[in-house]
Amino acid sequence: MTMTVNGNTVSIPNDPRVSLLDFLREHLHLSGTKKGCNQGACGACTVLVDGQRVLSCLTLAVQCSERDITTIEGLSSDGVLHPLQQAFIEHDGFQCGYCTPGQICSAIGMLEEMRRGVPSQLTGDLCAEVVAFDRDEVRERMSGNLCRCGAHNGIVDAIEDVFREAAE
């Protein structure tokens, strides 16, 4: 059984207890994905599975057979940062940097959800086809990613900077 991680095909571990998070960090040495709580309460471990943002700490690696995983390490190529990574630096969207990979992966997954018109808690008219991109929508949709340093304003700035046009 295999999965694809950042374009590379890798074998799934034998021990089914291994979470996708620990598989990435300890087996593949992709330690950009962070472990903040290991219980689905912080979002630091967010990765994209077939383009959807999920929590890798609550996903068993063995469940990812034939899946396509993208981690923070897969967003930049040849040393060129993803525009959102660059925007996080520009807008100071982090301090310690520990929640950052999860925030960035989550935001990328969020953009796809907004394009699809997935509603949120703040959605006024559920029949509307298009999600209006505003800062409170970003806040609500990023609320699964905790940050203790308090970089929230900068994170929203960065996301707005890069995604405002793309989302609408």
Binding site: S31, E73, L75, F94, G97, T100
Partner: peptide, 9 residues
């Protein structure tokens, strides 16, 4: 250290 942190490196 921004680029390193933004890359998860």
């Amino acid at each position: 250290d921004g680029p390193l942190k933004a890359k998860g490196a």
